[in-house]
Each structure stands twice: as C-alpha cells, then as structure tokens.
C-alpha cells in the first residue's frame, strides 16, 4: 500500500482543519457570550443570547 502516506496526509489535513475551525468558533462564541453577559449585567439588563434588547437594537451601531 504505497499510497498510504498520501491518504493519511489528506485525512490528517482535513481533520486538522475541521478541528481548528470548529474549536476556534466554539471558543470565540463562548468568549463573546461571556463578555456580552458582563456588559448587559453592567447596564442592568438580563444576560442575552438573543432574547432581550439585542433584538431591538439592530445590527447597525
């Protein structure tokens, strides 16, 4: 099976990319959720995951 290194490299590359993107997205989401909750708490609002004033504010700052 002389092609094994190529096969393993292809699968390894795809696996590494998937882990990099998914872990990066999960950590970023967790960090932003915590920061937004801190901010909302400082402003005297309920912590949000899309359930309070976030909806009324609009994306445009």
């Amino acid at each position: 099976m002389t092609h094994l290194p190529y096969i393993l490299a292809a699968y390894g590359l795809a696996g590494a990319l998937a882990l990099y993107l998914s872990i990066g997205a999960a950590l970023r989401l967790r960090r932003d959720r915590a920061r937004l909750a801190t901010l909302e708490a400082a402003r005297g609002r309920q912590p949000v995951d899309g359930q309070t004033e976030t909806g009324r504010a609009g994306v445009s700052a």
Binding site: S22, A25, R28, D32, R35, L36, L39, T54, V59, A61
Partner: peptide, 14 residues
C-alpha cells in the same frame, strides 16, 4: 457559530 459570535461582537461594540 461564527455568525452568532459576530452578531454578539457587534452588539458589544455598539
């Protein structure tokens, strides 16, 4: 997931 984080970051900045 990235888009949810992006919306939250936008909200934080505003």
């Amino acid at each position: 997931a990235r888009l949810r984080a992006g919306v939250m970051e936008h909200r934080i900045r505003s």
